[in-house]
């Protein structure tokens, strides 16, 4: 299981990559492994929409599970990873790269403090049966 050190993680298995006041969001290696083969991705927000921390931004489905992807930070949606709709398996093969989901403009950077770093997140997933 891979947990890059340059990311922040939420207890609900989303990761955030921060560059200035912008953030990219996806789900972790652990999450994609738990969900197994993904067959569906749909963004539930539009570009320009504002979301508060904890609000849903996308839906994921595998053959045996469904998951809501929630943004752990507040902000304005700048971009949605359109190719994912046709190729949801990118979340399985490259969760931290081409499997990203949305980019947003942060409105409250202090929220980042509540997120975990990679070692804390790894401990968190191990407690839930991760490897």
């Amino acid at each position: 299981m891979n947990y890059p050190a340059d990311l922040k993680y939420a207890g609900t298995d989303e990761w955030v990559r921060v560059e200035g006041d912008r953030a990219t969001l996806g789900v972790s290696d652990f999450a994609q492994d738990q969900l197994s083969d993904l067959v569906f991705f749909e963004a539930t927000v539009r570009v320009g929409e504002r979301v508060a921390a904890g609000e849903q931004v996308a839906t994921l489905e595998s053959v045996k599970a469904a998951a809501d992807v929630n943004s752990p930070v507040s902000g304005e949606i700048l971009e949605i990873n359109q190719p994912l709709a046709a190729r949801p398996e990118l979340v399985n093969t490259d969760p931290y790269g081409s499997g990203w989901m949305v980019k947003l403009k942060l409105t409250d950077k202090s929220e980042l403090a509540a997120l975990m770093d990679n070692t804390a997140y790894q401990r968190n997933t191990e407690a839930r049966g991760g490897r």
């Binding site: 595998s62 053959v63 045996k64 599970a65």
Partner: peptide
């Protein structure tokens, strides 16, 4: 498309 169904989504 079973993830739409009650046995997986439960309350959702």
């Amino acid at each position: 498309l079973t993830p739409r169904e009650q046995h997986i989504r439960r309350g959702r």
